[in-house]
Design a protein around this nucleic acid. Structure first.
Length: 819
RNA sequence: GGGUUCGUAGCUCAGUUGGUUAGAGCGCCACGUUGACAUCGUGGAGGUCAGAGGUUCAAUUCCUCUCGGACCCACCA
């Protein structure tokens, strides 16, 4: 089979992927490996079930696929485990939008029907993202695919909830929570984003005080005024109660002293609304001040707000300011006050802090470790989630690449508060808790299934989507068969061979923006659940930006790279290379179509080197190692360069320097093999040279395969290899072939040729015009390479010992040229 | 307020423990199509390595500051 003139990826990629998948080699069980080979595991960060694959996914897939293919070729027992995330809020939002278009809503159709609708939607879009993942060349083991909402994983989620509850690490409590009135749910602290905003700062007359606030409407919920303990202005007032005139008449506040107050801001006195502010709630709690809730879960003013009841908070603010102005309660207003507004990371709606009953994970409460190795390394039998998670990284048990994210991780861990895990949305893992009687009753049952007796009602809430994702590395490896029979996690773990074989996973590769949402939570939860770290190394990639360095957005199609479209146009290999080369961990990458085009050109170059090799190799007689000798300087040079390349590329991949490895391979293929050795092969033009070229090229294909899997596999196939490149052996560098003398000598020849070409150009001599050349010195090298120089520089060479005119130097050579 | 990171050729970026003449890709300019490839080849132009100071025999590289971008955490009403 011979290769057509140009590489047309679109024609081959699906077919190649089909062959890989059909071979079963993505599954390490089918590779018949010796028992003692190293294990390499990557858990794929599950994309959202509703999502379309974007170029950020492609980068992740490319990086993970490089590692997976490399380790597979090294002969490691390699498992790359794929899956999909149910993405609770995100998915529910999408389906709610669909319902809205149809003129209905989740409340109209009810919980059961809504969830069925979500399920239908997910099963459809799930296969979309799976197929897009295939399109990107992911060599993951689809036979082990998981879904965070599968019955098995749900069972694991419930089990872990119960385990944490039994250990006292999960509790229910009334707290101020971040509430998104649009999502109608709580949010975790890190699901809240802050945006700078200009707003009005109202200076209001407040009994004996004048104080500044951005939210006058919360005055209806005030129960205190706080001042700094050392503030002399208010010293005598602390502890006293005052009657304050408000828009609904007089109300009482207590003056409290708290260090959280800044003496220098405003008047140094701050009104305290414990039910609608985190800071205020904390101050109130310390001083035993009650709260008064005035805003409900829809973001509306509550019944206790008199004529403002039912208004949205912003409406109420306007109305109240208007009334206060009439009453003479406004001192003055600063128009352009800059502050940070808290918004929902999903829908950008301003969040409303509210008091609410929720489930929390206690991060500062000790639990008992069971794993003896872990206890030994950690040094204690008891740990809090915070302590042990911090230790895992500090001790080097888990490594983070790039290093600087360790600091970010520590900082986050140190400031961590209890994690609110209950959500008021419908799609997700239902909290496995049942109540008898009213919800707030003392009688609570936490278990894997509903209690048998009557009268129990399940908690309405679902779990934060990251709760299930936090279990991902190990819940996906649990034994799926008869999972329901397991009542205890230890038992289930014990009977799960995959978990024993493949966990802890080797590398977690993901984008740095979810280090807290996901990476940190996996570390915490896995250390508690199974007393293991979830992974040994975390590799964090940065955001893929457009060519202006801005976040890509579908609303800007001119700079937004759509991976599926681009893959069809230039090939997946080109797209992957453009994401890998020039990229460093943790840093943003600017991607443009132009860059992808240049790597499409490289795919084609590689292809055409293949065509040349194919024409000239021993026809239909492919052997793993064609026989050849390393005879000429060029032979020695290319073998030396190539064996260095093997060593360097291998080292780079081992050290997560994927860009370096890719660049070196690109450079070797184009500027060593194609530009020089192939050209020389045309001159030497004997079977030995062609066999040597064949050898170098075939092994280069192996090195390139993790980076550009499709084109390399296709060429390899057409070369008539019986085996897929996918499972070929990774080349090993032969130090004996590394020959620095040959490399130095060859550089002299290269420079000589380049200088002759330049001289011809400077003297307006046609490139194909033959010139006469006299060279003095270094006879040994030159003599043996005469024919090469003659052809590549179009010259007739004489070696002499006297210098003529038009001189220049190449190292220690003296050269003169005449037309 | 605390912290991180970047500033190298027109553009995107390398530069591996400080050491000759600072590199690549793309773009640009000139020339070149005899069967691997025009998705190509050959050659070229282009940088006071953001600025200032310091350490050193030697600084793009280490330290300090300034200017200019990006980001994270915390959050002041």
């Amino acid at each position: 089979m011979s290769l057509p003139k140009a590489y047309t990826p679109k024609e081959y990629e699906d077919e190649i992927y089909g062959k890989w998948e059909k071979s079963g080699y993505f599954n390490p069980d089918n590779l018949d490996l010796p028992d003692d080979v190293p294990i390499f595991t990557i858990s794929m960060p599950p994309p959202n079930a509703t999502g379309q694959l974007h170029v950020g996914h492609t980068l992740g897939i490319a990086l993970q696929d490089i590692m997976a293919r490399y380790h597979r070729m090294r002969g490691d027992r390699t498992l790359w485990l794929p899956g999909v995330d149910h993405a609770a809020i995100a998915t529910q939002n999408v389906v709610e939008k669909l319902l809205k278009k149809e003129g209905t809503s989740r409340h109209k159709i009810g919980r059961e029907k809504f969830l069925r609708r979500v399920q239908e939607y997910v099963s459809q879009s799930k296969s979309t993202i799976e197929n897009q993942t295939r399109k990107m060349g992911a060599s993951c083991d689809w036979s082990r695919e998981n879904y965070t909402m599968s019955p098995e994983l749900s069972h694991a989620v419930h089990m872990q909830f119960k385990k944490m509850y039994d250990d006292g690490l999960i509790y229910r409590g009334e707290r101020i929570v971040n509430w998104c009135p649009r999502c109608h749910s709580t949010l975790a602290d890190d699901e809240v984003e802050h945006v700078e905003q200009k707003t009005k700062l109202y200076w209001i007359k407040y009994g004996p005080f004048i104080l500044a606030t951005t939210r006058p409407e919360t005055k209806l919920g005030d129960t205190a005024v706080a001042v700094h303990p050392s503030d002399k202005r208010y010293k005598n007032m602390v502890g006293k109660k005052y009657q304050i005139l408000g828009v609904l008449g007089k109300f009482e506040i207590t003056v409290i002293a708290d260090n959280a107050v800044d003496k220098n801001f405003g008047s140094g006195a701050v009104k305290v609304t414990p039910s609608h502010s985190f800071v205020d709630a904390e101050m109130a709690k310390k001083n035993n001040i009650p709260g008064k809730q005035i805003i409900d879960e829809d973001g509306l003013m509550m019944e206790n707000c008199g004529k403002y009841a039912g208004m949205k908070t912003l409406e109420a603010r306007e109305a109240i300011v208007k009334d206060m102005t009439i009453m003479g309660l406004i001192d003055h207003i600063d128009e352009n006050y800059q502050h940070n507004l808290s918004i929902c990371y999903r829908c950008q709606t301003p969040i409303e802090p509210l008091p609410s009953w929720q489930w929390f994970v206690a991060v500062d409460k000790e639990f008992k470790l069971k794993n003896k190795d872990l206890i030994k390394k950690f040094g204690k039998e008891r740990a809090t989630l915070k302590e042990i998670s911090k230790w895992a990284v500090e001790s080097g048990t888990i490594d983070i690449v790039p290093e600087r994210f360790k600091k970010i991780y520590y900082q986050w861990m140190e400031n961590l508060h209890d994690w609110c895990i209950s959500r008021q949305i419908w799609f997700g893992h239902r909290v496995p808790v049942w109540y008898r009687g009213k919800k707030n009753d003392d009688e609570i049952y936490v278990g894997l299934e509903a209690p048998k007796r009557d009268g129990w009602i399940q908690d309405e809430d679902t779990l934060d989507t990251w709760f299930s994702s936090a279990l991902w590395t190990w819940s996906t490896l649990l034994n799926k068969k008869d999972y329901q029979k397991y009542g205890r996690l230890e038992e289930w773990v014990e009977e799960s061979p995959d978990l024993k074989n493949f966990h802890p996973t080797s590398v977690m590769e993901t984008m740095h923006d979810i280090i807290f949402f996901w990476v940190a939570r996996m570390i915490m939860m896995t250390l508690h659940a199974i007393n293991q770290i979830p992974f040994k190394t975390v590799y964090l990639h940065g955001m893929v930006c457009d060519r202006h360095g801005k976040k890509m957005s579908k609303s800007k199609p001119e700079t937004c790279i759509e991976p599926i479209a681009v893959s069809g146009k230039y090939g997946t290999d080109a797209l992957r290379l453009s994401l890998i080369i020039g990229n460093t961990p943790g840093n943003p990458l600017r991607l443009s179509e132009q860059k992808i085009v240049s790597f499409r050109n490289f795919s084609n170059k590689l292809w055409n080197i293949g065509r040349f090799i194919e024409f000239n190799s021993e026809k239909n007689n492919f052997k793993e190692e064609n026989e050849f000798e390393t005879k000429t300087l060029a032979d020695k040079w290319i073998m030396s360069k190539f064996n260095s390349l093997i060593a360097e590329a291998t080292g780079d991949i081992d050290n997560y320097h994927f860009s370096h490895a890719g660049e070196k391979l690109y450079d070797f293929a184009w500027h060593a093999l194609a530009d020089w050795y192939i050209e020389i092969a045309k001159l030497q033009n004997d079977q030995n040279t062609h066999n040597l070229a064949h050898h170098v090229y075939v092994n280069l294909l192996k090195l390139l395969h993790p980076f550009t899997p499709f084109v390399t596999e296709k060429i390899y196939e057409s070369f008539g290899a019986g085996k897929m490149l996918l499972i070929e052996n990774w080349p090993i560098a032969d130090d004996k072939k590394i020959n620095s003398q040959a490399e130095q000598d060859f550089i002299i020849v290269q420079e000589l040729i380049a200088n002759i070409r330049l001289w011809k150009k400077d003297n307006r001599i046609g490139q194909n015009e033959i010139i006469k050349l006299q060279i003095a010195g270094a006879d040994k090298i030159i003599n043996s390479e005469l024919s090469m120089i003659n052809h590549l520089a179009k010259a007739e060479i004489k070696i002499i010992s006297i210098l003529a005119k038009s001189d220049f130097e190449v190292r220690n050579l003296k050269v003169s040229m005449v037309k």
